[in-house]
C-alpha cells in the first residue's frame, strides 16, 4: 500500500502562483467574482501565503504554498456527523462530496484553514465552461471541498500501471500544482518507498511540518534553510 506525501521547498518558491492557477484548471474550482472574493469566499485549494521578514528596507518576502496537509490524525475527520470525510488506507484525507450535508464543522476544526465551502451553485462563463476537467466532479451548492492531492491523477496512474502489470514509478504522478511549478518547489510521491524523491527530501534536516505541535501528523513536509 503506497503512502502518499509531499514536500514543499519554500526557499525555492517565487510566489508566482502558477500552482494556484493550475489547481483551478485541474480541479474545476469555481471563480466567484470580486464581491464574493472580498467576502472571503474564494476557492483556493492551494494558496501562496506571503509573510514579510525583517523591517524595511532590509525586508524579505517569504512565500509558503499551503494546501490540505492530509493529516494522519486529521482534526476535520472525526467531527463530521455523516462520515463525509475520512482517511483512506493510502493516507489521503478523502472528502466525499455527495455525502456532505454542509455542517462546516470540519472546516472549523482545520488548523490550516484549507477547507473550502461552496456557498452558491458554481457557474462558469462561456467559454470557461468548455475547459472543465471531465475527471473531476463539479461540486454543488452547500458542500465542503478541499485539495485531494489530485486523487484523479493518482488513481489514473495506478490503473495504467495495473494494466501494464507494473508498479507506479516514482515521479509518474504529478499533482497539477507540482506540474505547473517552474521552480520545482513541490515534490509528490510515495513515502513508503524509501528511495522515492519525496521520501529522501522529507527525511532531510531542512524539513518541518506545519503546526505539527498540534499533533495532527501532516503529510506535507516544508523544506527551508540550510543553504539550499
Amino acid at each position: 500500500m503506497p503512502s502518499w506525501g509531499m514536500t514543499v521547498d519554500t526557499d525555492r518558491c517565487t510566489g508566482c502562483e502558477a500552482c494556484v492557477v493550475a489547481c483551478h484548471a485541474e480541479n474545476n474550482l469555481p471563480t466567484v467574482g470580486p464581491e464574493q472574493a472580498a467576502m472571503g469566499r474564494t476557492h483556493q485549494w492551494i494558496r501562496v501565503e506571503r509573510y514579510w521578514e525583517g523591517e524595511f528596507p532590509n525586508i524579505k518576502a517569504k512565500f509558503m504554498p499551503v494546501m490540505c496537509q492530509q493529516c494522519d490524525a486529521a482534526p476535520c475527520e472525526p467531527v463530521c456527523p455523516v462520515n463525509a470525510t475520512y482517511h483512506t488506507p493510502d493516507g489521503l484525507n478523502a472528502q466525499v462530496y455527495n455525502r456532505c450535508v454542509g455542517t462546516r464543522f470540519c472546516a472549523n476544526n482545520c488548523p490550516y484553514t484549507v477547507r473550502f465551502f461552496t456557498w452558491f451553485t458554481p457557474s462558469w462563463d462561456s467559454p470557461m465552461n468548455e475547459q472543465l476537467n471531465p475527471d473531476v466532479s463539479i461540486r454543488t451548492s452547500g458542500i465542503m471541498e478541499k485539495c485531494t492531492f489530485c486523487v484523479q491523477r493518482i488513481r489514473r496512474a495506478q490503473d495504467t500501471a495495473k494494466d501494464e502489470k507494473r508498479a507506479v514509478k516514482d515521479g509518474e504522478i504529478k499533482p497539477a500544482c507540482a506540474q505547473a511549478c517552474p521552480a520545482k518547489v513541490i515534490v509528490f510521491g510515495d513515502l513508503s518507498d524509501e528511495d522515492s524523491e519525496v521520501s529522501k527530501l522529507s527525511r532531510s534536516n531542512r524539513g518541518r511540518r506545519l503546526l505539527e505541535e498540534l499533533g495532527t501528523r501532516p503529510r506535507v513536509v516544508y523544506l527551508s534553510g540550510g543553504g539550499a
Binding site: G40, R41, R104, N108, F117, W119, F120, S141, G142
Partner: peptide, 15 residues
C-alpha cells in the same frame, strides 16, 4: 432556494 451563501459566513468564519 439560492444557497447557504445568503448567510454572511465565509472562510474562515464558517459559523
Amino acid at each position: 432556494k439560492y444557497g447557504i451563501g445568503m448567510a454572511g459566513k465565509n472562510r474562515p468564519s464558517y459559523w
